[in-house]
Amino acid sequence: MAILPPGENWFHQKVAKDEKIWMGLAFVMSLFLFFWMIIWHVYAKQNPSFVTYKTTPEEFYQLTQAFIEKYKIGEENGIPVVKPPPGSDVFLLGRQFRWEPVLVLKKGEEYRFHISSLDVLHGFSIQPVNMNFMVFPKYDYVLTFRPTSAGEYAIVCNEFCGIGHHMMIGKIIVEE
């Protein structure tokens, strides 16, 4: 009875057969989930990165500006468009309320994204592929992406960053 102390011998009561089987199944499922994550981490191709560097907003801003200057090919709606070579380090800066720069990438090639923020937390959400990561000020998150499909993609900010949060949208173009 849930409202009264259990009977004297509660600790020695035998577990019913069906409850025992169920507990076994549930335990196996739990272990499976745990080891599945490890196996996926080792063998599969979609895993959150664990490469992070400390930085400062000033340093990261400077690096992003240098990156933009080096590979700039144009401008769209006041935001520089940048085409870095495959395999390079790519700098993407989030700030209230825009992403800089617009990136032009090549399908099937690897890029080392460095993502950080100038001010508050932002969310890095690539749509419509729907991959989501967090962006912090003072931390440079290094994510190595290999875009496997071509087209135009949006970077939606999906962590609340202030009153203009809904205007914070960037762009990635993936060419064949």
Binding site: Y53, K54, Y139
Partner: peptide
Amino acid sequence: WIPPIPDEIKQSLL
């Protein structure tokens, strides 16, 4: 324990 951005990366840009 997080390290700063490695110098090679900084040098290649700056």
